[in-house]
Design a protein around this nucleic acid. Structure first.
Lengths: 156, 156
DNA sequence: GTTGAAAAGTGAACTCG
DNA sequence: CGAGTTCACTTTTCAAC
């Protein structure tokens, strides 16, 4: 599986992350390629799984998914990532889960419409034998969000 | 400014979040509307800011943005959200920032290519007068991620 | 990269509550 | 009038070469 991206591929990705509905002619213009050539790039990137899909970016506050929380999870005994994935995925409010370094074992990101939905979801997470405790932080206000993308690293 | 979404609007959003490059004919088919009518819906949702844009979903591991961390930030004295936004936004590795409830004041989500990039970025964050301490958790393995969208709430 | 047929986008005139 | 539809016309897609 050689997913070696060349410079043109990276530019194509940048272009599509900025505007997921860009036409192939527009993409081609940015990378000095004809529209069909640009399309072949995009098709290949999709086939390789580099581009997993396209999506609309929605203002969460308008749609009513406004309540968020970050939850640290402390587990007891041995914890298999597979097992954790399965039980966290069962809670629909959990939109992201990962294992982390430090005293906690996992970090969850939850999104819901109401605080009580969060409460219930966190209750479900805690309600498993292998979960020892959780430490939740409700999001008061989101300062900003930006897409992951090719971007300069900080200098310091 | 009444941004009241009706049932059709929500279906349009769901459709575009599942496939950001869906044609207007496809969208129309899902909501029993003609293609031009579907386009007018989408145009209105964009104009209202409900749809903020379209983007490609990229596999981060392929592109090399593999190292992630969650960082709790403890501030001293009065903290203006505007000020916090400005100083966190200055660090390119910070892809998401919010104020939170609990003992910490803010939660940051960082993504970088290498652990030392994270280290440098966290150093930059700490290097402000109003930052008292930080508490970082490096992401060991991402268990799953899923888009925010209209979705069932957990029952419990 | 180029070409051409098929598909999608887009504005205008029209219709219905 | 706001919202949907059909209809012409342009642009884009996409599978040849």
């Amino acid at each position: 599986m050689s997913t070696g991206l060349d410079d043109i591929d990276r530019k194509v990705l940048t272009c599509l992350m900025r505007d997921g509905r860009a036409t192939y002619a527009e993409i081609g213009q940015e990378v000095d390629l004809s529209a069909p050539a640009a399309k072949r790039r995009v098709d290949r990137l999709r086939a390789e799984g580099v581009i997993q899909g396209f999506t609309a970016v929605i203002d969460p506050s308008v749609v009513g998914w406004v309540t968020e929380a970050y939850v640290e999870v402390y587990c007891s005994g041995k914890v298999s990532p597979t097992q954790l994935r399965r039980q966290f995925q069962a809670v629909p409010e959990v939109i992201s889960a990962c294992t982390i370094s430090g005293s906690a074992d996992a970090m969850l990101h939850l999104v819901a419409e109401e605080v009580q939905d969060l409460e219930r979801a966190i209750g479900l997470v805690r309600n498993e034998d292998n979960i020892e405790q959780t430490r939740s932080a409700i999001v008061l206000s989101r300062l900003f969000d930006r897409p992951v993308g090719p971007r300069g690293r900080s200098e310091g």
